[in-house]
């Protein structure tokens, strides 16, 4: 009886314990005037002022538009390649095509491992590697997005394919469907809505990454933000940031539309 009671309270005890550890950790912070950089407040004020009055001059708008276009182009190209990687590796990593248990285990472990390798390395690191290897070419940026995003998407696709309900698959198998037919008449159509919705979310992330990527000199919104920051032109920084936000919001709206059509 008492062991059952202990089991019941296990989670609560852990919660109390972890909360206590967190509170205790606050004591190691040296509270005082040195905690914040004293000159920071002025910079913060300037930034806020920039937000209130972004630079809407035509020259900056033109620059922001073309930079946003570059950022979007890198994201789209990178994601297109990532989708191809994710579909091939994801299907294989889900093991739904394997004929025997052993083949399935080998496939799942092998391809999940490969996907793990791709996404374990951050896109910025991939970008440095590719710039070192092929120079400051657009391909460096595209590959740097495609590989880690392919790894992330592929892993989630594999999970989604594995979580497909069994009944329709069993029924298709009983109707004489081969494994490839099961994939295109069962697994993929069932998982499609979820896969697409996750893909759109990752597309948003790819736009962010693509903007950051341009810090290493590939052009785009991030590059412009960096230049303006170096000039301490916060009003321009905000113009570019607002363009970045607009891009992400637009993609989100598009994804909502798509999902409504798929789920309805």
């Amino acid at each position: 009886m008492s062991s059952k009671l202990l089991d019941f309270h296990k989670k609560n005890i852990l919660t109390v314990l972890l909360s206590a550890v967190f509170i205790w950790s606050l004591f190691s912070v040296q509270w005082g005037p040195d905690l914040f950089h004293p000159g920071g407040q002025a910079a913060l004020g300037q930034m806020m002022q920039g937000l209130l009055q972004p630079d809407w001059s035509p020259a900056i708008l033109r620059l922001a538009l073309s930079a946003a276009w570059t950022t979007l182009a890198y994201a789209v190209a990178g994601m297109s390649l990532a989708i191809v990687i994710a579909l091939v590796f994801g299907v294989l990593a889900s093991g739904v095509l394997a004929s025997t248990r052993t083949a399935r285990n080998v496939q799942v472990i092998g391809f999940r491992g490969a996907l793990g390798f791709m996404r374990a390395i951050h896109e910025l690191v991939w970008a440095w590697l590719f710039v070192a290897a092929i120079g400051l070419s657009p391909f460096a940026g595209i590959f740097a997005i495609a590989i880690p995003y392919g790894g992330i998407l592929g892993r989630i696709f594999a999970d989604m394919l594995q979580d497909v309900p069994e009944e329709p698959i069993t029924a298709l198998r009983a109707a004489g469907a081969s494994r490839l037919q099961l994939l295109c008449y069962g697994y993929v159509p069932i998982a499609m809505a979820d896969m697409l919705s996750y893909l759109m979310y990752r597309f948003e992330c790819a736009i962010r990454s693509s903007a950051i990527m341009s810090f290493i000199g590939l052009g785009g919104l991030g590059f412009q933000i960096q230049l303006s920051l170096q000039d301490l032109r916060y009003d321009q920084v905000w113009t570019f940031l607002l363009f970045l936000i607009a891009l992400v919001v637009l993609v989100d709206m598009w994804s909502q539309l798509l999902r409504k059509r798929l789920v309805a």
Partner: peptide, 22 residues
């Protein structure tokens, strides 16, 4: 193979047998 068996025997279960999105 399943293809040969499918010519001999067909199966119907409860209604969760279809792919709803198709």
């Amino acid at each position: 193979s399943g293809k040969h068996l499918a010519k001999a025997v067909g199966i119907i279960r409860q209604q969760f047998d279809l792919v709803g999105s198709l």
